[in-house]
Design a protein around this nucleic acid. Structure first.
Lengths: 338, 338
DNA sequence: CTGAAAGCGCTTACAG
DNA sequence: CTGAAAGCGCTTACAG
């Protein structure tokens, strides 16, 4: 089994290589009948143009790069990224793009990967996730003429177009709902504090609590793992006057928190209300099912891919704002026990 | 910002292009001092060789393809694949390979992607997952001189080297444990029946139950989603003489099944014992925590990557068998109520 | 040890 | 409408 080249097709069809290229790429310059003859020969011989050769003569690579910074210790990817990737793929593969995935340790300088991708003409464009304050990756990408889309708040994306949703608004909705149920002591179990969206959420949370005159509000830092969520919950619930409601920055921590509450003999939502961020299937499966801030992450991914495709097409694109996550109350939230 | 080429480096360093290539690739033919001067110039100018040009002159692409067949309806990837990808990446990126990820609808002919990847010289090797009986992808890959590793039982991998674990042995361990606890009516909620490993598990399950003289054993088909797991569980528990133990083919279905059991007023493990396959964090977080068949999926991924790298290096590789998943009993299994 | 040249497989102006 | 040729940016025998 040898890979046929354009020269093989040309020979078999009795035309020049140029004609084959024109015919197969649907460009003018060949008659309809020659075109279909060439096409038939190419199909029969199972021809696929060498991507390297195309790229070398100026074509796009049709590859999009996604470098995910993962803390070394945390195994596996979070449900959020699975869904995001699903959405990305839906749009990309429909437009014959592929996704080049690279997990990079969060500690190391993950700016190199973008330089390498660009220098090696590996990818046509890239996505940046998990923005941090003063993110060096953003600085690098602003320098490079490599189309890039940031997944995160625009204020941290520099001059890169960003796709984002207003996490602050979602958090306010959650807090107001809890306040309406009579909760006065709400705590929040936050994700990695270096991440910009964590900052945004924390600021919105603090502000909302102050506005509603809630007392004893606090935000504790965790790292998205069940272990960290459980630990934080245990600490909060062991206080002299424990909070009556908890808001978590992801679903894994919320589920872990629920387990801790039950194990400490609390009833949910009787003694404690719980709200999760990002509504993966688990939220519905635990008992009681978790009230959650829901958004269509796959759609988020599809839109990010579309935005990047437009940027790669040379369009000047603006940041786009997605629907904020909305509160879907389920069994884990209820009126405070008076 | 323009990308420097090898010619730019040559000019700046006052040598020929050939010398630059030799120097940067660590090949003999340049003196140590010239080499380091060229290296310095290349570093300073931020040179990265064009991957397309390298590939075109015979080099590897350093890309590995992973095409995941996903049923159109099922959103998101399963925890198993997240962990597998994590493991793959760990090994691959350490050896400067990248992973090209493509989700393909399970219905469409996903053999094309391999032909295209091969024809276009896109990837150096590929991984095949979710083997089905008489899998056409295996047939195609046997034809193509493209290094490939199958993730699944060797008997379904044709002449491809496979990486696999003995799911039958794991299931026997689970069944024997349940039998030892006095369970006589065990049902199994299986994953997609087209998949070969589902077949293997079903066969092992049936055989083990027969050998242990268990009665009323049954395997019902589901599709790995929580919904399907819940539905199957509801049906099983509504029978005249419901099973006293359930074995699920993944964690999501098991968690969903647990929720159904609790919602039907059963106590777990008092009235019903539950065992899950694949021990993701959720199994530990629900209440009671689920007994599960555990294996190190990330290691599985690392080993698959290593096997593929050896195949890509031209080695003749044999299938390798991983440790079977082992039962980790937790709170969801207990003696049958006598 | 170094330089000039061919070649990888495409695309695309440029003549005919 | 078609063919011959240059060029993309590397690698690698082949002379010097």
């Amino acid at each position: 089994v040898k890979r046929p080249t354009i020269a093989d097709i040309a020979r078999a069809a009795g035309v020049s290589k140029g004609a084959v290229s024109y015919a197969l790429n649907g460009r003018p310059g060949v008659s309809a009948v020659t075109r279909s003859r060439i096409q038939a020969v190419a199909d029969e011989m199972g021809f696929t143009a060498s991507s390297a050769a195309r790229e070398l003569s100026g074509s796009a690579s049709y590859i999009v790069g996604l470098a995910l910074p993962r803390p070394a210790g945390i195994l596996g990817m979070e449900p959020f990224y699975m869904e995001l990737i699903t959405g990305l793929e839906e749009d990309l593969s429909a437009h014959s793009y592929s996704l080049l995935l690279q997990l990079v340790a969060i500690e190391e300088t993950d700016t190199d990967i973008y330089r390498r991708w660009w220098g090696g003409r590996r990818v046509d464009g890239v996505l940046v996730c998990d923005l941090r304050q003063g993110d060096r990756r953003v600085a690098v990408l602003e320098t490079l003429p490599l189309p890039a889309v940031a997944v995160g708040p625009p204020h941290a994306a520099g001059s890169l177009p960003a796709i984002w949703s207003d996490d602050g608004a979602s958090l306010v909705e959650a807090v107001e709902y809890l306040a309406a149920l009579g909760h006065r002591q709400i705590a929040r179990i936050a994700g990695l504090s270096q991440l910009v969206h964590t900052e945004v959420r924390t600021a919105a949370f603090t502000l909302a609590c102050r506005r509603l005159n809630l007392v004893e509000v606090s935000t504790v830092s965790a790292d998205y793992t069940g272990e960290s969520g459980a630990q934080a919950t245990r600490r909060l619930l062991s206080q002299a006057t424990p909070p009556t409601a908890l808001v978590y920055d992801n679903d894994i921590m919320a589920v872990a928190g629920l387990a801790v509450a039950l194990e400490m003999g609390l009833s949910v939502p009787g003694d404690l209300s719980i709200i999760a961020w990002d509504d993966s299937p688990i939220c519905r499966l635990v008992h009681p099912p978790l009230s959650a801030l829901t958004r269509d992450i796959a759609a988020y991914g599809r839109h990010a891919a579309r935005l990047l495709r437009r940027a790669m097409a040379g369009e000047k694109v603006e940041s786009v704002q997605e629907q904020p996550a909305r509160l879907r109350p389920r069994g884990s939230t209820g009126p405070v026990r008076g």
